[in-house]
C-alpha cells in the first residue's frame, strides 16, 4: 500500500496560504536525516512552491503523487 516508509504525515489540505509551506518547514525541522515526510496538499500553487523551498533547504523530493482532483502528496526525504 504505502509507497514509502513514511515517518511523519501532515495533512494541510484547505489551509490558507502559506500554512502548508510553513507547516512543512516546521515538520522538517523536527525530523532526522533519512526519515520521510509526507505532505498532503490540495492547492496547485503549493505543489509548485513547496518542492522548490524544500530543495533549497537541502532535502530531497522523492515524488509528487496526484491523489485526486487538485490533490497531491509530496514525499520528502530528510537530508
Amino acid at each position: 500500500m504505502a509507497k514509502y516508509a513514511v515517518t511523519k504525515s501532515i495533512d494541510v489540505r484547505g489551509e490558507v496560504c502559506p500554512v502548508p509551506d510553513v507547516e512543512t518547514k516546521r515538520a522538517l525541522k523536527k525530523m532526522k536525516a533519512g526519515e520521510i515526510l509526507e505532505v498532503w496538499i490540495d492547492y496547485a500553487m503549493s505543489k509548485e512552491r513547496i518542492p522548490e523551498a524544500v530543495k533549497n533547504l537541502g532535502h530531497e523530493i522523492l515524488e509528487i503523487e496526484e491523489t485526486g482532483t487538485s490533490e497531491w502528496k509530496i514525499y520528502i526525504k530528510v537530508k
Binding site: 495533512d11 489540505r13 484547505g14 489551509e15 490558507v16 496547485a44 487538485s70 490533490e71
Partner: peptide, 18 residues
C-alpha cells in the same frame, strides 16, 4: 486546469482569522 475544488480548512478558527 482541473484545479477547481471547494477547499475548507480543518480548524474553524481559520474562518474567524480571515
Amino acid at each position: 486546469a482541473k484545479e477547481f475544488k471547494l477547499r475548507m480548512p480543518k480548524n474553524p478558527k481559520t474562518y474567524l482569522q480571515v
